[in-house]
Design a protein around this nucleic acid. Structure first.
Length: 554
RNA sequence: UGGGGUGUCGCCAAGCGGUAAGGCAACGGGUUUUGAUCCCGUCAUGCGGAGGUUCGAUCCCUCCCACCCCAGCCA
């Protein structure tokens, strides 16, 4: 099945119109992350939108690091971002770009604005500037430095650049309109002084451009035709346009905004995600419970499923909260088709088949996929003692329970039908073993006596099973919109988001399970080998199988 | 009380004046050696509300309501 989105959206409509009218010869978009954290599912959406649009319309998409704030940025993040984009399956045009590569050009343009009388060096402190800015309902007032001479601003700007002025002692501001209803137009800061080492330019600069002064100009330098960002930047568009109109830029990109992706029961704030990492609530940025791309990867999500999910959720300008069930559908749907089947007992209960000779063993054969013969089959040794799931046995039960019950029959997946005779208990009354009998000639056949099995359960031969650990995951947060209002995120952590089972038994073929491959443990779900566990056999649960309503029995 | 946005099924989302796509979820039923998959079926006389224009309005106009974003020398 194709992962292409067949539904229309407003961005596609705009681009198609621009192509039809001849306004756009070749679509050029860009994905502009700030390297101050790991990418999360919301970024995956933006990546799919930007690269997807470029691909669909035969254009290209640049990767550009918006590294204008050295205090929060690092090379570690740059590398993780590149890795995640490549893993998602997208290829950026040429080399990765950096806002910091344009610092020289940006500075020249700053001088241009000053010379044109459209920018000035302001020496108001941050606090004073806030007072002068006014409020949402009241206009601001002009800075006392607003009308200083071009020469004076030029001299000060050079001093700022030369590192001769202290952090916060001055800033370069655009001269627009302190009374504008749009606060972004009240003489926005273009450059601020920061004596900080930059991950890319080292100590070359002691002033750094603001987002507003950098972004549109970078787009123009790169010939971006459609600059796509999220809704909160809509207020910045008039400033984006003002700068492009007042600077001798090589092209005129246009900004479009769309609503960011917000899955429920999740957070997509780099700040909050970093807090979970710093507070050790999770193992790290790639903890399988994290909505980060690296976490989802370790959890067993695939690039295809993530892209499918992004396409399914559409692109619009309406704030929304997407049901995580859609993400779960995307990965289940893919894994159902691609994952080889296998059996693994999570909470083992021994079953002794009393009528099966102790020295006998057979090789059972099971398909890797019930609907796809081309995937082949695997062998499963079978002998007198096997492990089954504790929850698959009851001494007695109602008709809804389609598993092993004393006096009743159940089918062992890909093997015999067995009938339970007796439960062996320890001194505390816990069932520690079940005695059962194999029904003759039932491998691949129904019983000759016509008494059919109630259901099918999975099993593993005790002699050849491989011990392993399995990590079961549930949503990290208990609430649908974690941290909403003024609630504390930390109070909403799901204490059962991770359940680690260390006494599991997998069928022998799973001993060589490979990282990156999704497996179905029949009747349980999809699992993948944990990439962070080295040679130990540890499986992460990607997602459980869908529960039919019949699964609820009392 | 300023500026910018958005409101179509429980959750997403098409629709651009001609009589409400699709997906997820849910609910029935069938197949099944995974209570999985798969298959069939059900699920908005209604498009935030009220007026208006029109032969005809989710689409145009007016007013109202609700929600989101903006007062970092963050992005």
């Amino acid at each position: 099945m194709s992962v292409m989105d067949t539904t229309s959206n407003f961005l596609k409509t705009i681009i198609q119109e621009d192509i039809d009218s001849g306004k756009t010869a070749k679509v050029v978009t860009r994905f502009p992350p700030e390297p101050n954290g790991y990418l999360h599912i919301g970024h995956a959406k933006s990546i799919c939108v930007n690269f997807g649009l470029a691909n669909e319309f035969g254009g290209e998409c640049n990767l550009r690091f918006d590294d204008t704030n050295p205090e929060k940025e690092s090379i570690e993040y740059v590398e993780s971002i590149k890795r995640d984009i490549e893993w998602l399956g997208f290829e950026w045009a040429g080399e990765a770009r950096y806002a910091s590569n344009y610092f020289g050009q940006l500075y020249d343009w700053a001088i241009h604005l000053v010379k044109e009388g459209k920018a000035y060096v302001c020496e108001l402190s941050a606090d004073e500037a806030r007072e002068y800015r006014g409020t949402l309902t009241e206009p601001g007032k002009n800075s006392p430095y607003r009308d200083r001479s071009v020469e004076e601003s030029l001299t000060l700007l050079e001093k700022m650049k030369a590192g001769e002025m202290a952090d916060g002692s001055a800033s370069l501001r655009a001269k627009i309109d302190m009374a504008s209803g749009n606060i972004n137009l009240r003489d926005p800061v273009l450059y601020r002084i920061r004596h900080v080492t930059h991950h890319n330019t080292g100590d070359d600069w002691s002033i750094y451009p603001s987002y507003d002064f950098a972004h549109g100009q970078e787009d123009a330098i790169e010939g971006i035709t459609h600059s796509i960002c999220t809704l909160e930047f809509a207020d910045h568009k008039p400033l984006y346009d003002w700068l492009l109109e007042n600077l001798p830029v090589p092209s005129k990109p246009v900004q479009y905004e769309f609503a960011r992706l917000n899955p429920n029961y999740s957070i997509t704030s780099k700040r909050k995600l970093k807090m979970l990492v710093d507070e050790a609530v999770v193992e790290g940025w790639d903890d399988p419970r994290m909505p980060t791309i690296s976490g989802l990867r370790r959890r067993g999500y695939t690039p295809t499923a993530l892209r499918r999910f992004c396409d399914m959720t559409g692109v619009s300008r309406a704030n929304s909260q997407v049901d995580l069930a859609m993400l779960e559908f995307a990965i289940r749907d893919e894994l159902d088709k691609s994952a080889p089947r296998s059996m693994c007992v999570l909470r083992p209960l021994k079953v002794v088949l009393t009528n099966y000779p102790e020295d006998k063993s057979e090789i059972m054969r099971g398909p890797f996929h019930p609907q796809n013969e081309a995937m082949g089959s695997r062998e499963m040794p079978f002998s007198r003692e096997i492990w089954i799931e504790q929850e698959d046995f009851r001494e007695e039960a109602n008709k809804k329970y389609k598993r092993l019950v004393i006096g009743k029959r159940v089918r062992l997946r890909n093997a015999y039908i067995i009938e339970a005779d007796e439960a062996i208990k320890d001194a505390d009354g816990n069932i520690i073993e079940v005695r059962a009998r194999v029904i003759e000639n039932t491998v691949g056949n129904d019983p000759e006596d016509g008494i059919r099995a109630k259901g099918v359960i999975h099993w593993v031969d005790t002699a050849t099973a491989v011990a392993c650990s399995v990590k079961l995951y549930d949503r990290l947060f208990l609430t649908e919109n974690p941290g909403a209002g003024d609630t504390d995120l930390m109070d909403q952590i799901n204490p059962e988001s991770l359940v680690e089972l260390s006494n599991c038994y997998a069928e022998a073929s799973l001993a060589s399970a490979e990282v990156g491959q999704g497996y179905q443990f029949e009747r349980q779900g999809y699992f993948c080998r944990d990439e962070a566990s080295g040679s130990d056999l540890v499986f992460n649960q990607t997602i459980g199988l869908r529960d039919g309503q019949g699964k609820s029995f009392a």
